[in-house]
């Protein structure tokens, strides 16, 4: 067997800023996939736009760098067409909780077996530091002309409310902890959100690495993950402490793939991606005559 861990890192040089939390997330992802011994070609990684969007280029797997806010529906399409893929979607907080917020919520309703990693730093880094949906109201990182006027979204609570069956938060500077969360999320059957606190060392002059370190607490492994959504909400809404770890996990919840397998006669063993649609001569193999008979006249 090949050593997957060593081959997961691509030779593409990253252009992230020195000290960026993205490096930690990248390491956690490649280590997690390597340790899980998933062959790179079984794995498809979708990303959106922004610094986080570049992540797939640094990983040796099928890497699809999509549109701003849209990695989830791209990823859902691929997974539903070929459920045997391991699918990971990567966003930034602007990507996932701003422009892609509609997809964020609706993906929860479907519970497709995907791992969704959101790099959360409170700013739009690549466009030079504007406020993102996770920036607190009233704070003013260096690029803002006046203090932020918008309330922040709570990704953990939003994910719980939207139906995600695995909800977690990690910290980009605690790679080992994050890696374990990613491994569990990938193994988990259903849609998993991992919100990753990832301070932007250049533009978020408010929520710095040091500030996070002061507030971060790791969820008690005896109590969490829980299947009690109320308990998970309680921790998610805790304003004093910033909890990291797996808040909620419900492996019993039916995935979208399973729901379709109940509707369709032989999905997912026969899935849209593996259909043999023609014979050697290019003649279509689909027999539509049964349907057509209803319209004969």
């Amino acid at each position: 067997m090949q050593n997957f861990q060593s081959i997961y890192r691509s030779d593409v040089e990253s252009d992230w800023c020195p000290g960026c939390g993205d490096f930690g997330i990248l390491s956690a992802i490649t280590q997690a996939l390597g340790e899980l011994e998933i062959p790179p070609w079984k794995c498809a990684i979708f990303s959106g736009i922004g610094c986080s969007g570049k992540t797939p280029h640094f990983i040796n797997a099928y890497g699809i760098h999509t549109l701003h806010g849209r990695p989830l529906p791209f990823a859902i399409g691929a997974k539903m067409a070929n459920p045997s893929l391991t699918v990971i979607a990567i966003s930034g907080d602007g990507d996932g909780y701003g422009i892609g917020a509609g997809h964020f919520v609706n993906a929860g309703r479907r519970n497709v077996d995907i791992t969704y990693i959101v790099h959360n730093n409170g700013v739009y880094g690549l466009t030079k530091g504007q406020a993102s949906p996770t920036l607190k109201r009233g704070v003013q990182p260096k690029s803002l002309k006046y203090p932020n006027l918008n309330d922040m979204v709570n990704p953990i609570a939003l994910a719980l409310a939207s139906g995600y069956s695995f909800v977690a938060r990690g910290f980009a500077y605690n790679v080992k902890h994050l890696k374990e969360i990613i491994k569990q999320a990938v193994i988990h059957k259903g849609l998993a959100l991992i919100d990753v606190l990832q301070p932007c060392p250049v533009f978020n002059t408010v929520d710095t690495k040091e500030k996070y370190m002061e507030r971060i607490k790791i969820l008690d492994g005896n109590e969490f993950p829980t299947t009690d959504i109320k308990k998970a909400f309680e921790k998610a809404l805790d304003e004093e402490n910033l909890w990291i770890g797996i808040f909620y996990k419900n492996p019993e919840k039916q995935t979208y793939e399973e729901r379709y397998s109940e509707i369709l006669s032989s999905y997912p063993s026969e899935c849209p991606a593996n259909l043999k649609m023609s014979d050697e001569k290019g003649n279509p193999t689909t027999d539509i005559s049964e349907v057509l008979n209803n319209f004969l006249c």
Binding site: F46, F74, G77, A81, P272
Partner: peptide, 26 residues
């Protein structure tokens, strides 16, 4: 065995289709 998905909007609709196409589906 046709997967027909009612998406949350047309952006999701077309991007899901692109994802499926990348996986080899028509």
């Amino acid at each position: 065995n046709m997967v027909v998905i009612q998406a949350e909007d047309e952006i999701a609709a077309i991007t899901m289709s692109i994802g499926a196409s990348l996986a080899g589906a028509r």
